[in-house]
Design a protein around this nucleic acid. Sequence first.
DNA 1: CTGCCCGTAACCGTATACAGTTCTCGCAAC
DNA 2: GTTGCGAGAACTGTATACGGTTACGGGCAG
Lengths: 239, 239
Amino acid sequence: MTVRNLNLVESLYADLRRRLQLSEIGPDDRLVDTDIAEAYGASRMPAREALLRLVAEGYLVGSTRGFVLPVLSPEDIAGIFELRRQLEPRAAGAAARDLTPDAAEELARSMERIHEAHAVDDLRSLIKANLAFRNAWLGCVRNRHMAATISRFMDYFQAIRLDTFSDAATRRVYVDALSALFDALTARDSLASQDRMTAFLFAAETAYLAARARRVERQASVRPGRRNNSRTTRGNEGT
Amino acid sequence: MTVRNLNLVESLYADLRRRLQLSEIGPDDRLVDTDIAEAYGASRMPAREALLRLVAEGYLVGSTRGFVLPVLSPEDIAGIFELRRQLEPRAAGAAARDLTPDAAEELARSMERIHEAHAVDDLRSLIKANLAFRNAWLGCVRNRHMAATISRFMDYFQAIRLDTFSDAATRRVYVDALSALFDALTARDSLASQDRMTAFLFAAETAYLAARARRVERQASVRPGRRNNSRTTRGNEGT
DNA sequence: CTGCCCGTAACCGTATACAGTTCTCGCAAC
DNA sequence: GTTGCGAGAACTGTATACGGTTACGGGCAG
C-alpha cells in the first residue's frame, strides 16, 4: 500500500486539478485535507501537500477553515487577461503551424460537441468539450513552458465556468468567437489564428466579467448582511 | 518554538529561493531535506514542503538522492526565452510608464553598482546589483501576475549566473544592453523600453547559451566518461 | 589491476501524533 | 428575540517514526 503506482501526492494533485478544471469544485466548497485523505484512503500528508501545491500555484487559498477558491479581484482579472493576450495569440499561431491531423480531428469533434451542448444548454458537456478543445490545440504547441503557463492562467477561470456559461446570450458570443478560432486553426492559418485568438480573449473576458457580476449580485441578495463571512484569506500567490 | 513568527515552510521557501537567486546554490549541490531542517532548527516536514514547492515551480528536480538543479535542455531555453520575449517588453513598457521616483533612484544606484562590479570582475556584486535592478523595475509593474510570471522565468537562469558572467566579453554585451534599457526606463519612454528590452533579451539568451556551452565542455573534460552520472530526474515541471 | 556483486547507509514517501489557533454553536442574560 | 460569552470542535502546522528504494563503496573473483 505504501507505493501503489508512483507517488501518491502526485495523483491526488492531478485529480484535484482535474476537478477544478471540470468546475466540480465551486466557490462554496471547502477542501479539507483530512476529508480528501480519507476519500482516497491515504493519510493527511499527501493530501495536504497536494493542496499546498495548488495554493502555491494560485488555484486555492488557505484559510483557517479549509482551502477555498480564491476570489479574483478586478485587477487580477484584468492582469491575467493582459497576460493571456500576450501569450495565447502567439501560441495559437504556433499551434496552427504545427497542427497534427489527429489534433485537427480532435478539434473538430470538440467543436461539434460544443455546438451541441450550447444548443441544448448542457453546461457540463460544454465545459468538458471546451476543455478538450483547449487541450487539443495546446498539445500542438511545442514550447512546453508556453503551454503550461497558458494552461495555468486559463484554469484560474475554470472554477466559475458554470456561471460563465449560464447566460445563453453571453455564451453565444463566446461560442461564436471560439468557432472563428477553430476555422483559422484547422485552416492552419497562423496569422488568422493569432487575430481570432485575440478577439476570442476579449469575448472571454467580457463573458467572465458578466458572470462574475451575476455571482456577486446573487451573493449579495442571498446573504442579507448577517455574519461577515470574510475568509481570512492569508493566501499568497507565492511565485 | 512551534510558531515563531508565522509559517515556517514559508520562510524556508523564501530563503531557499533567495539562495537560488543569488546563485548560492550551484549545479553540483544536492539539497537534502534533513540537512536543511537541521540548519534551520526545524523538522523534516517544513523543509520538505519548501523543497517540493520549488520542485513544483520548476526550480529544482527531485532525485532519489536529494534535490538538484534541473538541467535545461536547449528546447527549454529557447522556449523560456520565447516566453520572456512575449512578456518582458510589454512589462518594461508598463514600468516605464508607471515608474516612481524611488524606483528610478534605485535603478540608477543598481546600474552604477553593475558598472562598478563589471569593471572589477566582482561577480557576486554583479549578481546582487543585477537582481536589485530587476526588482526595481518589476516593482513598478502593476500587473502582479505579470511580474510574478516574469520573475519566475528569470529565476530559471539565476543558477548558473556565475558562469554567465564569468566571460568578460559576453558580460560586456550584456551590460551594454542593460544600460540601454536603463536609459529608456528612466526617460520613461515606453516604446523605447519595449524595444530595448527585446534587444536585451536576445543578448541575455546569447550570454546564457555561451555560458552553458562552457559549462558542458568543462564537465566533459573533468569527467572522462566513467560512471554515467545521469540524474534519475523524475522531476516534473508540473504546472 | 579491473570488473562485478552485495551489504549498508542515505534519502524519500507516507503515516501517525500532538500542539496551537480559530471558528461555531449553544446557553444564558438582557 | 437578540446579543454576549465560553466550551468544544475543527483544522492547520510541525514533529517524529517507519518502511521501502536506490546509490555507493568495499571486497572478492577473474
